[in-house]
Each structure stands twice: as C-alpha cells, then as structure tokens.
Design a protein around this nucleic acid. Structure first.
Lengths: 228, 228
DNA sequence: CCGTGTGAACCGCTTCACAGCG
DNA sequence: CGCTGTGAAGCGGTTCACACGG
C-alpha cells in the first residue's frame, strides 16, 4: 500500500488484467512474479513493485492467486461496472470502430453516435440511430455519458473535443491527428498510427546502431552457490 | 549534437514534424521555443533540449527557421523517402485502415495485402489484390517489404508476427490485443484502444484525487530584478 | 537585451538486494 | 528454503538557470 500510484503503472494494468483473465480462463490458479513477468515481457521485480502499490496480494513462497489478483486489478482500474461511450464521427473509421468486435468489451458500452453529415443522420449504426452532432452536448449531459470517442477529420476534432468537455465528459479517446487541448482533469489518449510508423523508421534508418547491450553483468551469478 | 538520443524524444518528433508542416503551410517562417512549446503542450526547455540532440538549428535572439527545422526533423526520422508496408488481415479493421485516408501518407506506401479467408483472396482492396497469407513470407522477402501491419484476430497475431520477422521485416504495427513477442532489433508498436480506455477509467473513479499542483513555486520570479 | 544551447540539479521510474513470512 | 514486499541505489528524462551568440 503506497502513497501515489505512478501513471506508468496504471497504463500497464490493462495488460496485467488481460493476461490474468487468459490464465484464469485456462484454469491456472496461482502464478509467480517470474512467470507473470515472462508473459508480460518485464522483470519479476517490476511485477512485484507494481502490485505493491495497491497492497499485498501474494503469499510468500507461493505466488499470487490468479482470480484474486485479477479482481483486484480490475477493481483498481475501475472496471467491473459499465462505462458509457459516445462516438462522434461515423466515417470509415468510426464505423470500423463500432463494428469491430473487441473494441468494446462488456465494461464499455456505446450509447450514442453522432455525425454532421445529413445523409448519415437517422441511419442506424451498431444498433444506434446516428444523431445530429448539434445534439451532442445536450445528449451527453442528459444521459451522463462519461467517455467520448473522436473520429472526425482533423479540422473539426478540437471543436468536438471542446464540446465534449463542456458537456462534462472526463475522458476522451481521440483518433484525429492533432495536438489536442483539454483542461486539466480531463483524460486524453491519442491514437495516431501514423506517428507510430514515423517513429519506428528512425530505428530502421541505415545510420542507426542499437545501444550496447549494457556490456557488463553477463555474470548470471545470483545462484547463491555459497549456500548448499 | 549528442551521443545517444532518448527514445522519448524520437517518439515526440512526429508531433514536431506535424506542427512544423502546418506552420510552414500557413507561411510561418520562424518560430521560438516558447511558441513551439505552447503548440506542442510542452515547455520551451523541453523543445530546446530535444532539438539539441541533433544539432544547433536556432539563431540566438531569433528562434528556429521553420522550413529548415522541418526538413531536419524529417531527415532524423528517416522520412522523406518511401517505406513499404504490408497489411495482414482484411477484416473490418484492415479494410478501414487501408481505406482511411490519412492513415498512410506519402512516405508510407501499402504494397501488399494478405488474408487467409478464401472468400477475400483475389478481391481488390485499395488498388491491391488480396493475396493468400501463405504467400506472406515469400512476398515480403521478394519485394523487400520493410514494415508489417497486423490486423488479424488475437489468436493468429503472434504467428503472423513471427512470419513477418522471419521474412525480414524490422518494424511491426500490431492492432491485435496481445502481448506480442519480437526479437531484439525489431520495432513493435501496439495499437490497443481498449487498453487506453481501461487506463483512463482509473482517473475517473470516485476514489481518485488529482495530485497536488506542486504546491510551491507559484513565485513567477525569474524576471531577473537583480541585473540592471 | 532576447532566446538558444547546455551543464547541473532534480525527479520519477526501474532495478537491485535483502529482510521476512509461509 | 522460495518468493513476496520494499528500502535503497541506479538511471533516464525533465526542468532549471545561466553562459554565450546575434
């Protein structure tokens, strides 16, 4: 149990939950930090440290109870209860998002979709009637929608984000490639695949040489050969 | 000019490039670290530090030449020449990716698409004929495809990634929600919107209280009243 | 003087190493 | 004993503060 949980830890927890659910589904009941670390491509120390921010869930000598740890992580993240989403923009991307199974799981429910194109308004998408974007603010307020998903062209994205914020949304997932502005206290996540590509190319350039693999400490001691 | 460039800096450069291009398009010729910082939502110090890793592009008292800085950043990232992409998986997501304008810009060109579904193989998608995924490895090798985009179901993703790696791809953009394994030297970026949502909810929970705004240093001195 | 470039201080996260519990 | 939980050390990145160039 600690003071403040680092942001990085929070961002790792969804992966923890993901793996733990998979383990549970397969019937694994207990797991150690070593194996869990291997599955998540981190170190055992990282696992233990991360979990220590929330409490002591492990049993020394044994490891962690998968089911218990899963529900703990789930609870920390605020999952296990449904969150309501609104999608703005029903172009190719918006439609793909809403129809792509797995984008939304049981904890996230799309409850309204918006577009400004009058040819689309009134049609159905994913079981919802597409509303005129002018209704966005009021609908979000009335229905207490908590999270907004922005899939509109770049030129309109900031305006939509401002509207969502004004309507009281506290978290936004933005697919438009802009440097969005949100007030403090509003969460923003950016999905910008182009930027991912553009940063990978740096490491692919002829000039790039990988950093030395730490050079030292290929010792692998630590096996405690003194003991017997 | 420095030794090794931090990864975080590389990941910020696409945004730098994005903003600089926008500025250039609008006719802005010069910009200071203060304004650039404001546009990128960082501090001037961050901007100057980041740029210092590559050289000295600014003129003291003035600022940075937008065009020059843009081409510098572009060059550092290895852009300005085309990179070839292969898409694997032409379900809803894959189709949305390839048809969504703006996903790929002039520096990234999709040159092959694959699927395992025989109903889709042979059809055209984005101007390309969908190939059988069994041809993936050979085609990637033959055509020297450099980057792979994975948009297949989770259960098949790791196998596809392994195949891409075997074929010589050095960078992979993966949309499947798995904890993928790639050998060192291969770049991997994960696009997992569900995890973004799941980490945002932590900050939306009733229990969460924002960290104190640093408390001190609301002094705003630094006006250098000692000088004269 | 204004604003860049940069060593140095600072800060937060990761890794280490080990005390302690089952 | 094995493995968790954790203070402490280590490290990378950010922020500060100022020397220096136009």
């Amino acid at each position: 149990m600690k003071e403040q949980v680092p942001d990085v830890v929070i961002q790792r927890l969804p992966m923890y939950a993901h793996i733990l659910r998979a383990l549970k589904d397969v019937g694994v009941e207990s797991i150690g930090s070593r194996e869990l670390g291997a599955m998540l491509r981190t170190t055992p120390a990282q696992i233990r440290k991360d979990l220590s921010y929330f409490g002591k869930f492990g049993k020394q000598g044994m490891g962690y109870d998968v089911g218990q740890l899963l529900s703990e992580v789930t609870h920390v993240l605020g999952l296990g209860r449904p969150w309501s989403l609104a999608l703005v923009g029903t172009g190719r991307l918006g439609r793909a998002l809403i129809e792509h199974k797995g984008f939304v799981d049981e904890d996230f429910q799309m409850v309204a979709v918006f577009d400004k194109n009058h040819r689309r308004i009134g049609r159905k998408l994913g079981g919802l009637v597409i509303q005129d974007v002018v209704e966005l603010e009021q609908t979000v307020k009335e229905r207490g929608i908590e999270i907004g998903i922005v899939a509109v062209p770049p030129g309109e994205a900031q305006r939509i984000i401002d509207t969502l914020v004004r309507a009281g949304v506290k978290a936004i997932l933005n697919y438009a490639p802009i440097v969005a502005r949100v007030p403090k206290g509003v969460q923003l996540r950016q999905i910008t695949p182009l930027h991912s590509l553009q940063s990978m190319t740096y490491y692919l350039k002829p000039g790039y040489v990988a950093p030395a693999p730490v050079a030292e400490q290929r010792t692998k001691k630590k096996t405690r050969e003194s003991g017997i």
